[in-house]
Computed example of a mutant assay.
Amino acid sequence: MLLLAQMLRSSEEAFTTSIASTVLSAGAVDDVMKSLAAEWAEERIKAVSILLRCMQEDGRCRNRIANKTELAPILECFPAASDVERFEIVHFLSKLIRSNRRTLNEQVLHVIKDEGAFSTMHTFMSYLQTAPPDQRPVVAGLLLHLDLLAEREK
């Protein structure tokens, strides 16, 4: 996972596209998803990075990832992650909630809101305040979705 994630961080777009396409065509997405529950937080974060790149390459894998992904281990990584890793986690979660199926979208939002050992909304709000300007729309969008969900539940 670590090596694959490092290769996907290459600045050469054709190279990263080729790698993401290979992961998708080889059916390795399910194997990468298993690493989201790994004991080592660094492996979980790298798996998020790989899956995010796969969703960017071919959005059709998003529903499968959303259906099978255990989000609690990812959310647990957030406070200790670097700024780059935090944005990848938020971007990953943001992509997951863009499902065409409303029920799947709401299930993912409920997990993000309710799981984890900390207040996810508070943590994301704190991150929004320190995030670089180009990352703020993604973080704010995720927070807006979570807030709308909380309002509907009242």
Rank of each mutant, 00 (worst) to 15 (best):
E57I: 05
L149N: 09
L142M: 04
V108K: 00
L4S: 05
R136I: 02
A66E: 07
G27C: 03
M121K: 08
M33T: 07
M121R: 09
V23Y: 10
L128K: 02
A131W: 00
R86S: 00
G59Y: 10
Q135W: 06
V90P: 02
S25A: 14
K154M: 13
H91R: 11
K154R: 14
R53S: 13
V29H: 07
V111L: 14
S10Q: 05
G59T: 09
A81Q: 01
R101G: 08
T17S: 13
T17R: 15
A131I: 01
L104P: 02
I97V: 10
M1R: 11
F15G: 11
A47T: 02
L144I: 08
A81H: 04
F118W: 10
R44N: 04
P73T: 03
K95P: 03
A72S: 10
C54I: 02
L4N: 06
L143C: 05
L148P: 01
I50P: 01
E88K: 06
E88H: 10
A131P: 00
L109C: 07
T22Y: 10
M121L: 08
T16H: 11
A20F: 06
T69M: 09
I112G: 07
G141W: 07
G116T: 05
Q135G: 01
H91V: 02
N63R: 12
A66T: 05
I74P: 03
R98Q: 12
V84K: 07
K113P: 00
E88Q: 11
P132I: 09
P73G: 00
F124I: 05
Q6M: 14
V29S: 04
R136Q: 08
R44M: 07
D83T: 02
L2S: 09
G59W: 10
T123S: 05
E153A: 15
A14M: 15
K68R: 15
A14P: 11
S99V: 07
T22H: 09
K34H: 06
I112N: 04
V32K: 00
R101W: 04
D147H: 13
Q135H: 11
S10F: 06
V108E: 04
L149C: 09
H91D: 11
D134L: 12
R64G: 12
Q107E: 14
S126M: 08
P132A: 12
R102F: 12
A26L: 15
A47L: 04
R102A: 10
E70Q: 11
E151K: 14
A28M: 13
A38L: 05
L8E: 05
T17E: 15
R152L: 13
G141F: 08
L36H: 00
D147Y: 11
Q56E: 15
T69A: 15
L109W: 03
P133V: 14
V90S: 02
T123D: 01
S94W: 09
A5C: 02
F118G: 07
T16P: 04
L52F: 04
S126G: 10
I97W: 01
T16S: 10
L51K: 07
E153M: 13
